[in-house]
Every structure is written in C-alpha cells, then in structure tokens.
C-alpha cells in the first residue's frame, strides 16, 4: 500500500488547481455537503437548463481527496444531461466500492487508489452524494437549495 497510489499527481493537480471553483449566482440547484467528522465542506452550484447541466461551480475546503474529487466531478458533469449525470454518479460510487466502471470516468479513475484507504472513501464520495440528493430533490420539486450531511 503505497502513498503514491493514493496521492496520484492528477489528484494533487486538481487539489492545487481546482477546476470550476467559485460561485454561480444564477444557479438552479445549490447544495452543501459536509462531513462534520473530517471538516470537509463543499457547496455545489448547478445551472440546469432543458434537462442539462449547462454550468457548474463549487466552493469548499477539506482534504485533497474531497476537493480533487469535487473538482473532477464538476469537469465531467458540465454539459451532460441529467440521465448521463445519474449514470456517472452510479459508476463513480460503484468504482469506490470495488466495481469496475463501465463508462469512461476520465481523471476520476485516479481516485481508485482511495479504495485501499477505507476511511477516506467518504472524502471521495462526499460531492457525489450531495449531487445525487440534489438531483433527487430537483426532479421532485424543481429549483432547490439543500444541505447534505454525511455521517
């Protein structure tokens, strides 16, 4: 079990240079995810138009794994329609629990190493679980502001 497997360069790159960082003032969905135990926090801002995520930003602070995972997530979901986003969520969560992804996850594959450090899996999935719950509420009631606390 080597630390280089956990802290891959792609991860450190996204941690040091997060993509889509910032706030979106015209977002349709705002969701906060928090893991009080670690102190990892993220806020996701999504602009959904015609069933497609046309823009996304995030703010947050936390460990390299949680922030890199969020950064990579924003990159891959931008421009995708909601059903594709759902498939990505399933594939990523599946991968973190040992399943080989059936769709291309791009940079996110770098997070596979986290599986060997079980206490860190929650760091990697924080943003994804927040996104999933936000989509659930969005599809039920339209525009949402919601908060997800991961235990």
């Amino acid at each position: 079990m080597s630390l280089d497997e956990l802290y891959k360069e792609t991860i450190l790159d996204h941690y040091a240079h997060p993509r889509n960082k910032g706030k979106l003032n015209n977002s349709t969905i705002t969701v906060e995810g928090a893991n009080p135990l670690c102190g990892d926090e993220i806020s996701l801002y999504l602009l959904v138009e015609g069933g497609r995520i046309v823009d996304v930003r995030f703010e947050g602070r936390g460990c390299s794994i949680s922030q890199a995972s969020t950064s990579m997530m924003t990159e891959i979901i931008k421009g995708k329609d909601l059903s594709q986003v759902r498939a990505l969520i399933d594939a990523f969560k599946g991968m973190m629990h040992g399943k080989e992804p059936e769709i291309d996850l791009g940079d996110l594959v770098a997070l596979q190493g986290v599986r060997k450090f079980p206490v860190r899996i929650k760091c990697a999935t924080l943003a994804w679980i927040a996104l999933q719950q936000a989509l659930d509420s969005f599809e039920e009631r339209g525009a949402v502001v919601t908060r997800v606390v991961e235990e």
Binding site: L3, L6, C63
Partner: peptide, 11 residues
C-alpha cells in the same frame, strides 16, 4: 500550509 490535516495524518 496547503495540506489538509487529514492528508498530513494519512502520510
């Protein structure tokens, strides 16, 4: 600096 304490503890 620039490293989260969880990453510090992990290393």
């Amino acid at each position: 600096a620039d490293v989260h304490p969880h990453d510090v503890a992990q290393v």
